[in-house]
């Protein structure tokens, strides 16, 4: 598995909730349409600007709230990874289970601004600002988590193990 990503970042603040990313009205929509409402109130129009491969950077307590699978919406938009000062654990698990790398890196919001390019290795757990050269260490992801990411998420893994009739979209 290629664990290095180099892409443009978007930076959001502290305690961004799941309601701010996957509001109840979007839960009534199919995933491709629901994905158009991420940050609907926080950063209106963001889903028009984000490109496949982009990385979302957040502050503390990222993803406080519900079990609703926000990660599926980020994947739908092609977001390549999430990096935060701190994650809500349910939100972090959702990301991993949907095959979306999520890395905890204290100091990340001070080291990056919108539009910067980040190089990150989620297996070794480091990130780098390609312009400033600033390099920050996060925790490496446990092997068990890397296995899920390598499979593209937990549903493809289950499909491979014979629990699900056909490969499913994470």
């Amino acid at each position: 598995m290629d664990t290095i990503v180099t892409e443009r970042v978007w930076v959001v603040g502290d305690s961004v909730t799941t309601d701010a990313m996957y509001p109840a009205f979007a839960m009534k929509l199919p995933v491709p349409q629901a994905a158009r409402h991420i940050f609907y109130e926080l950063r209106p129009g963001w889903t028009d600007d984000v490109r496949p491969g982009d990385i979302v950077v957040a502050g503390r307590n990222f993803g406080l709230g519900s079990s609703r699978p926000v990660a599926a919406l980020f994947r739908e938009l092609g977001v390549a990874a999430l990096v935060a000062e701190e994650f809500n654990s349910l939100f972090l698990r959702n990301a991993i289970n949907h095959g979306l790398p999520a890395l905890t890196v204290p100091g990340v919001t001070a080291a990056f601004a919108d539009g910067d390019t980040m190089r990150l290795d989620f297996a070794e757990g480091w990130i780098e600002n390609t312009a400033s050269g600033a390099r920050l260490e996060g925790g490496a992801l446990p092997p068990l988590v890397l296995e899920i990411l390598a499979a593209g998420g937990i549903l493809p893994k289950l499909a491979r193990e014979g629990y699900v009739p056909m490969p499913t979209k994470a």
Binding site: S67, N97, P142, L155, K157, Y163
Partner: peptide
Amino acid sequence: ARGLGPAEVYSILCTGKTWFQVA
């Protein structure tokens, strides 16, 4: 008892197990 995303609960439904990091 803790909340987990639909994909993970589905996985537990199938396998009866999951992982936790002790906080």
